[in-house]
Nucleic acid binder design. Structure first.
Length: 565
RNA sequence: UCCGGGGUCGUCUAAUGGUAGGACAGCGGUUUUUGGAGCCGCCUGUAGGGGUUCGAAUCCUCUCCCCGGAGCCA
């Protein structure tokens, strides 16, 4: 396998567009993008792609990418989300200004421009209710009809608009509409709403405004005000591009007109990225919060142990295209493994402990089992990480799975009469075991070969397997959360139309009696280590000796079993 | 129904008129003090028909399929 990390960034339709623009001299070779989150939820993996595309293109062409909060709807937006998004962005590792931009900073300019449009006969105040306006809009293949207020005198619209702003009217009673074309085949062009009345306080402008611009009326103009050249957005805005251009063409702009270009958003199998649905998972209590390690939110992935660098590499690798697509989550996971394999320290932990006793282990002068210390490498992929000493004595824990009284075919681990290696310690041979009345093995007896200290035999004999272990007398008790996919279906909701029908009710397994090697008491909060033979695990940011499984190791044995069953 | 955007291995993605390549997944081998990692190999694809061309995934044409669009959401 070649290193995905080393693979050059995929070719990319947006990059090609920018190159073409630069060659043609468009925008005088200037490249400026923007990332415009709405502060009504937290960032998720889908945003990571958008961030990567926007910041990536800007950086590559020596331009800038503005972080601009698209805060035009006070009903759903909150300052707390602004802070959360800023924190998530900082973690992801793209350069962001200390002072983010806000669409709400342009409310005055937007208002002036709206007045200009009214004066030029290109906008009017409508006083019909939403349902009526919607009906008049027509449908696909059906023209709309014009509002009876469409041709009211400019002075009347101006007066009404002024009073809308002054808060003289109730929510929903008046709107400002662009006067474009009610027959237009593109529904977005059928006299779209520019302003609506909202009594709700805004997280930045407070009570200053009673009217708020719609997305279409705010976005392109914000781009223009900031000098954005390439306004990159997702495919569903394709039909809005005509409107984006129309507004800009009818305004006196400080710069060249920015240009909107669409690309496919990132979708992943077994994952939902709709903010509304993520919010529901949180509010339902299905997950513990926005930062639940099963969530595709940036803060969830972070807590899960996904390295920001791996997410960035993934985003660069998948490229940018206009094809609707859904990446397999396994691809993301392979980037996570690749990165973690490189950087994660190796440690030993036993998740489902089975006690093993060495019957020929020496006793010291006080009648206690001798304690030895073995030297283990911290990361074979990176010798600079050095080694650590791990205590070993006559009784220790192994995984329950690592012993079978009656071994199935191809099972290479401990079984009566078989010799295996304890990683970095000794060869041991199972001589007997105890079981309870249900036949569950409760303890295994082994003998060890003192000549095999360090894990190799002077006579050169081989063993089929190497197992991890934790000294019983020195084990730390810890807890471990194992995560499965939050949704069982590759495409949640595909079968029934409701994503929640595909919720995996067993997406979390909590183990409270894991046995950890002593060095695991020293990990930093949030640090990710590899539990040998098991996978990568992230230390909880606050709770000591609590670990979240980031992702498992590839597991040949599991694969063999799966094939059988 | 109208308009717009798409359709290349299982999943993504490259090839921009000149050998259909890569990654993930899968399969097999090798190696291994992690059944990890690594290394080697295999596997499968241009939606369909017609045309232009010495040559088509690429250009033209017809058909089929998928996605988006009728918020005072973004």
């Amino acid at each position: 396998m070649s290193e995905p990390t080393d693979t050059p960034t995929a070719s990319n339709s947006v990059r090609e567009l920018v190159v073409a623009d630069n060659q043609a001299g468009t925008f005088d070779g200037r490249v400026q993008t923007r990332f415009p989150p709405e502060p009504n939820g937290y960032l998720h993996i889908g945003h990571a792609k958008a961030i990567s595309v926007n910041f990536g293109i800007a950086e590559e062409f020596g331009g800038v990418c503005n972080l601009r909060f698209d805060d035009t709807n006070p009903d759903t937006e909150e300052a707390s989300y602004v802070d959360g998004i800023l924190a998530d962005l900082a973690w992801l590792g793209f350069p962001i200004d200390d002072d983010p931009l806000y669409a709400s900073s342009y409310f005055d300019q937007l208002y002036e421009w709206a007045v200009l449009l009214i004066e030029n006969g290109l906008a009017f105040v409508d006083e019909q209710d939403g349902e009526t306006i919607s009906t008049q809009r027509g449908g696909y293949g059906r023209p709309g009809i014009e509002s009876p207020f469409r041709d009211r005198p400019v002075s009347e619209s101006l007066d009404l608009f002024e009073r809308m702003r002054a808060g003289k009217f109730a929510d929903g009673t008046y709107v400002l509409r662009a006067k474009i074309d009610m027959q237009h085949e593109n529904m977005q062009m059928r006299d779209p709403v520019m302003y609506r009345i909202r009594g709700e306080a805004h997280h930045r402008t407070g009570e200053a405004w009673k009217i708020y611009p719609t997305y279409d009326w705010a976005h392109g103009q914000s781009d223009a005000i900031e000098g954005v050249t390439h306004s990159l957005c997702s495919l569903e805005f394709d039909s809005h591009r005509a409107l984006y251009d129309w507004y800009l063409e009818h305004l006196p702009l400080p710069f060249d007109q920015p240009r909107q270009t669409e690309f496919a958003r990132l979708e992943l199998t077994h994952t939902v990225t709709s903010k509304r649905k993520l919010k529901q998972l949180v509010e339902d209590g299905t997950v513990s919060g926005w930062d639940d390690p099963r969530m595709p939110t940036l803060r969830g992935l972070r807590r899960r142990g996904y390295p920001a660098s791996a997410i960035r590499n993934f985003c660069a690798f998948i490229g940018v295209a206009r094809t609707n697509s859904r990446h397999q989550i396994e691809l993301l996971e392979s980037f996570i493994r690749t990165e973690l394999n490189r950087v994660a320290l190796r440690r030993m932990a036993v998740l489902r402990p089975l006690k093993v006793v060495i019957t020929n282990w020496p006793i010291d002068d006080d009648g206690q089992p001798v304690v030895e210390y073995v030297e283990l490498v911290n990361n074979p992929e990176n010798p600079e990480d050095g080694t650590r000493t791990v205590p070993f004595t006559g009784s220790f824990y192994i995984e329950q799975d690592d012993f079978k009284a009656e071994p199935p075919p191809k099972y290479f681990r401990l079984t009566p009469g078989r010799e295996v290696r304890l990683r970095g310690a000794y060869f041991v041979t199972a001589t007997g075991f105890d079981a309870d009345e249900n036949g569950n093995v409760t303890e295994v007896q082994v003998t060890y070969d003192p000549e095999t200290r360090g894990g190799s035999a002077p006579d050169g004999r081989k063993v089929k397997s190497t197992m991890h272990w934790v000294s019983a007398a020195h084990a730390l008790d810890g807890s471990v959360a194992l995560y499965g996919r939050l949704f069982t279906a590759e495409v949640p909701g595909e079968a029934t139309g409701d994503v929640f029908d595909d919720l995996n009710r067993d997406s979390l397994e909590l183990i409270s009696d894991a046995k950890l090697e002593p060095a695991l008491g020293d990990v930093e909060p949030g640090q990710v280590v590899q539990f040998e033979r098991l996978g990568y695990f992230a230390a909880d940011p606050v709770e000591p000796l609590m670990f979240h499984r980031t992702v498992g190791l590839r597991d040949e044995w599991a694969k063999i079993q799966k094939r059988k069953g």
